[in-house]
Simulated assay, not measured.
Amino acid sequence: MPEIARIGAAFAERRIALQLTQQTLADLAGVSRSSIQSLERGSGSVSFGAVVDIAEVLGLRIDMSAATE
């Protein structure tokens, strides 16, 4: 599974666990709902800055050390 797809699936799972809609998450993170949709689909068309902002709202941490292994 590509890394962006794995991240998107984890973000979707966390969003659902927090009972947030895609629109609510988008509003809280300051991104568009289409960015949330793209990320959750694993399309990879979301900027890294947006991923960081979304992760922060979800209470998740981006571990850059995993990317260098």
Rank of each mutant, 00 (worst) to 15 (best):
L28N: 03
D27Q: 10
T68I: 11
S38F: 05
A55E: 04
I62A: 14
T68A: 11
A50H: 08
Q19E: 14
F11G: 00
L58C: 07
L20T: 14
D27H: 07
D63W: 03
F48M: 13
V31Q: 04
I54W: 03
I16E: 15
V57R: 09
A67V: 07
E69P: 13
A9M: 10
L60M: 15
R6I: 13
D63G: 01
R61G: 05
E3T: 08
D53V: 00
M1D: 10
Q22L: 06
G49H: 06
E69H: 13
S32I: 02
L58V: 07
D63I: 03
Q19T: 15
L25Y: 02
R6L: 14
T24I: 04
V57P: 02
E69N: 14
A29L: 03
I4P: 01
L18F: 09
G59V: 09
A9C: 07
Q37I: 00
V51W: 02
G49P: 00
L28D: 04
I16C: 10
R41K: 09
S65P: 02
Q23F: 07
M64E: 09
G42S: 02
A50M: 01
F48P: 04
A12Y: 06
A12G: 04
G30V: 01
R14Y: 10
D53C: 09
A9G: 08
I16N: 14
Q22G: 14
S45C: 01
G30H: 07
L18E: 11
V57L: 07
I36M: 03
E69S: 15
T24Y: 05
S65L: 11
T68Y: 08
T68C: 08
A66W: 11
L28V: 00
Q23K: 12
D27F: 03
A66M: 13
M1V: 00
E13M: 12
A67Y: 10
M1Q: 12
R61N: 13
A12K: 15
Q22K: 15
A66R: 15
D27N: 12
A67W: 10
M1W: 04
E13Q: 12
S38Y: 06
F11I: 10
Q22T: 09
S38E: 07
T68F: 08
E13R: 11
V46H: 02
L58Y: 05
L18M: 14
T24H: 12
A10L: 13
A5S: 11
F11S: 03
S65M: 09
R14S: 11
T68K: 08
S35M: 06
I16R: 15
M64H: 11
L25G: 02
